[in-house]
C-alpha cells in the first residue's frame, strides 16, 4: 500500500494568504488544488513537501468571467471547462482538450491551472520509489534528493532516455496548454509581490526539469482568452493508446482565422507531448494569405512534423509517432477547413 508521506496542511483562506504561505514555505511548499497530479507523486515520493497549501476550494479561483473575452479561474475543474457553453461555442479547441484529459472522475477533480502546471512525464520517472531506486534514480529525481524531483541537474543523476545527455527529456503531457496556446491565451501569475500576466507560451521552457518559467513563489490564478470571434475556428487532436485514461503521446492543437474567400488570416498550430514544452509551430505564419488547399496543408504538415522529435520515453514506437505527427496536423487543418473528417 502506498501511503502519503507526512506533511503540514494549510487551507488557504484567500489567494493573498496562499501566496504568502508559498513565499514563506520556500522550496518546502507546494500548492494543492485537484490533487490528481500531486497526490500520486507524493505516494511515489517524487515530491515530498513539508507544507501543502490547499487552494482548490477558493471561490476567486473558481470563477468564469465574461468581459473582454473570457477569464477562467485556475481552479475550475476540467469537467466544468469542457462543459461550459461559452467555451464550447467560442473556443472548441479548449473544450475538446479539457474533455480529453484522463477520465470523467479525474476531470471532476483536476483543475485547469493544475493541468497547465502538470509535471513532465517519463517512463523512467513515473514509477514507484522502489522501481526508481533499483535503477539508481534519474536526473530529474536523483538519489541525492532521495528520488525527489528537482529543477536543475545536480551532476549525479543521469537521463536514462539519452544517457550522455546533459538535460532531462521528460515530456510535457498537458492537454489544455497546447489548446490554449493555439487560442492565444494569456495567464496571470500571482505572488506576494503582486500579479503579472504573460502569454501562456512564455510559461514553458523546453527542459524536463525546469519546465515552468514561473518563480517558485508564483501561482497561476487565471487564464484569459481573447473575445470569441466567429471567424476563428479551433480544434484539438490527441493520440494515445486507449480512448480514455491515457496521457497524450502526441497532440495537435490548431486555431485558424479565416477571411475573405476562405483565405487564412491568422493561424496558430501547437504540438503537444513531443518535447518538454508545448511546441508552437513557427511556420504557422506560412499558412497566412491563402486558402487551406491540400497542397498547402501537406507542405505545412511535413514542416511541422520535423519539430516532433520523439524519444523512447513514452508509449508507442518512435518512428510511428513521428509519422502520426504529420497525419494529425494534416487532419486538424482539414477539419478546420470544413472537411467531414473523424476526430480521433
Amino acid at each position: 500500500m502506498m501511503r502519503v508521506p507526512a506533511f503540514q496542511y494549510y487551507r488557504a483562506p484567500s489567494v493573498r494568504d496562499a501566496v504568502a504561505a508559498l513565499r514563506d514555505g520556500g522550496a518546502e511548499a507546494m500548492l494543492l488544488a485537484g490533487g490528481t497530479d500531486v497526490v500520486p507523486n507524493l505516494k511515489r515520493r517524487q515530491q515530498n513537501p513539508a507544507l501543502l497549501i490547499g487552494i482548490g476550494h477558493l471561490p476567486e479561483l473558481r470563477q468564469t468571467t465574461n468581459g473582454a473575452g473570457l477569464t477562467l479561474g485556475a481552479c475550475l475543474r476540467l469537467a466544468d471547462v469542457a462543459d461550459d457553453p461559452r467555451v464550447r461555442a467560442h473556443y472548441p479547441g479548449l473544450a475538446i482538450a479539457a474533455g480529453k484529459v484522463a477520465t470523467p472522475q479525474l476531470r471532476n477533480m483536476g483543475t485547469l491551472g493544475g493541468n497547465l502546471c502538470l509535471d513532465t512525464r517519463c517512463n523512467y520517472y513515473n514509477q514507484s520509489y522502489e522501481w526508481r531506486q533499483a535503477i539508481d534514480f534519474c536526473m530529474k529525481a536523483p538519489a541525492s534528493t532521495g528520488g525527489q524531483a528537482c529543477t536543475s541537474p545536480d551532476g549525479t543523476g543521469i537521463c536514462w532516455v539519452a544517457t550522455s545527455s546533459p538535460r532531462c527529456w521528460a515530456v510535457s503531457s498537458t492537454d489544455t496548454a497546447p489548446a490554449l496556446i493555439a487560442l492565444g491565451a494569456r495567464v496571470t501569475l500571482a505572488s506576494a509581490d503582486g500579479r503579472r500576466t504573460i502569454p501562456l507560451e512564455d510559461l514553458y521552457a523546453n527542459d524536463g526539469m525546469a519546465y515552468l518559467t514561473k518563480r517558485r513563489d508564483e501561482m497561476v490564478t487565471a487564464v484569459h482568452l481573447e473575445p470569441g470571434d466567429r471567424s476563428w475556428r479551433s480544434t484539438y487532436r490527441k493520440l494515445r493508446r486507449r480512448g480514455s485514461f491515457d496521457f497524450p503521446v502526441l497532440s495537435v492543437a490548431a486555431a485558424v482565422r479565416f477571411g475573405k474567400e476562405s483565405a487564412v488570416e491568422e493561424a496558430r498550430i501547437v504540438l503537444g507531448a513531443v518535447a518538454s514544452w508545448p511546441v508552437l509551430v513557427p511556420e504557422s505564419a506560412s499558412l497566412v494569405g491563402k486558402p487551406l488547399t491540400d497542397d498547402a496543408i501537406e507542405a505545412f504538415a511535413e514542416q511541422a512534423s520535423q519539430l516532433a522529435k520523439p524519444l523512447d520515453n513514452t508509449d508507442f514506437a518512435l518512428g510511428w509517432r513521428k509519422k502520426m505527427a504529420r497525419a494529425y496536423v494534416s487532419g486538424a487543418l482539414k477539419e478546420l477547413r470544413g472537411d467531414a473528417v473523424r476526430r480521433p
Binding site: R11, T36, K43, H57, T103, P104, N108
Partner: peptide
C-alpha cells in the same frame, strides 16, 4: 491507488471522484 482504475470512486457533492487521490484533510 494512483487514479488509474476507478474502483475507489465515491460521490463528493454528487459528482464521482477518486477517493484514493483526495486527501482526508481536504474533506472537512
Amino acid at each position: 491507488e494512483l487514479g488509474e482504475c476507478g474502483t475507489c470512486a465515491v460521490l463528493m457533492e454528487g459528482r464521482p471522484v477518486l477517493s484514493c487521490l483526495v486527501l482526508g484533510v481536504e474533506c472537512d
